[in-house]
């Protein structure tokens, strides 16, 4: 059956509510027939009226409520309307949820669903990628599914995870990414594992979230036009990082390009390059490269927006520069 990325999230949420009385959903506009700003909870909200609750516009309280309910044995899933608004919950996430296990020995299992990433016209406050500042803090698990199957499996695994999980779901993929999905046959990797989406020996392209699809397209271009065989890694889980898969791939290819939709400074791409440079230096045949969004707030106009973040063509250009080193 062909389903969209958003429908995979809805499926995982609906099944979790059906199967586990500890699960409840809390967020703005998610209840009843309305079913959320992006309609993720449409249908399931009506089926589980007692456990799908609208919240006030109070992101800090949403996160604090998730922490409290998790400590009392529930498995809360809180929906942020846009990941940009998770800044309001920053304190509860990084100072509270992230520190509870370390400080007290108790686990704090909840999922914060964060619609991330840009869409044309979204502008500076509805397009951001929060994974870099969230993953800076020990104690938070930060994941970013890029496929329909991962949207389903990673959400179910995130709900099962004992730690607070920041679930970065890309809102461009919501309706634009569709795939055949059969949960009994689809590949289901563990939550903390990276995936090799395409094998190849010439250069490793590392990405996550929506940018994985540009990386795969870049690999196609490089294969078709330049006879290059690129390996594409989808990190899936950004914190903790699957360092083994990254280093093993670089050992095979000797070249690495990291492509993200996020800003460059202090980001996940920088972390991957630090890892490759310090622990995989002997494997490298060329300087590791990163390709990130431009270092400004995210622009409103579709033309400016398109120029702001990497695409397949630009990734392919950087891979060619790396190959020519």
């Amino acid at each position: 059956m062909t389903i969209a990325y958003l429908e995979a999230i809805r499926l995982a949420l609906g099944e979790s509510l059906d199967e586990d009385p500890r699960v409840f959903l809390y967020g703005q506009d998610i209840a009843g027939a309305f079913g959320g700003a992006f309609k993720v909870t449409k249908g399931i909200a009506e089926r589980h009226q007692d456990r799908v609750l609208n919240s006030p516009i109070s992101e800090d309280a949403m996160a604090g409520i998730a922490i409290g309910a998790a400590l009392e044995g529930m498995r809360p899933v809180i929906e942020f309307q846009f990941a940009d608004f998770a800044t309001i919950a920053f304190n509860q996430f990084v100072n509270h949820a992230a520190t509870i296990h370390w400080r007290t020995g108790r686990s704090c299992p909840f999922v914060a669903r964060l619609p991330v990433g840009g869409t044309p016209g979204g502008g500076p406050f509805h397009s951001q990628m929060p994974e870099s500042w969230l993953s800076h803090h020990p104690g938070l698990v930060v994941v970013a599914p890029a496929t329909v199957a991962d949207a389903y499996f990673m959400l179910k695994d995130a709900i099962a995870c004992l730690d607070p999980v920041m679930f970065c779901e890309h809102k461009y993929l919501y309706y634009h990414l569709k795939a055949d999905f059969d949960k009994t046959r689809a590949e289901h990797l563990p939550l903390g594992a990276a995936a090799i989406r395409r094998g190849g020996g010439d250069c490793t392209i590392i990405s996550y979230s929506g940018m994985v699809h540009e990386a795969l397209r870049a690999a196609e271009i490089l294969s078709r036009d330049h006879d290059l065989d690129c390996e594409v890694i989808d990190l899936r889980c950004l914190r903790p990082l699957d360092t083994e898969t990254i280093l093993n791939s670089v050992a095979r290819t000797g070249r690495v390009v990291v492509a993200t939709e996020s800003w460059p400074f202090g980001g996940v791409a920088a972390e991957v390059l630090a890892l490759v440079s310090s622990e995989g230096f002997s494997h490298l045949d060329a300087p590791p490269r990163r390709l990130c969004a431009l270092d400004t707030p995210i622009p409103f106009h579709p033309d400016l927006f398109a120029a702001h973040h990497p695409d397949a063509e630009r990734i392919a250009d950087v891979v060619l520069e790396t190959m020519a080193f």
Binding site: H101, G139, V141, L162, G192, P240, D242
Partner: peptide
């Protein structure tokens, strides 16, 4: 800092 011993 994590309750899960191994995310993998």
């Amino acid at each position: 800092a994590y309750a899960e011993p191994d995310l993998k």
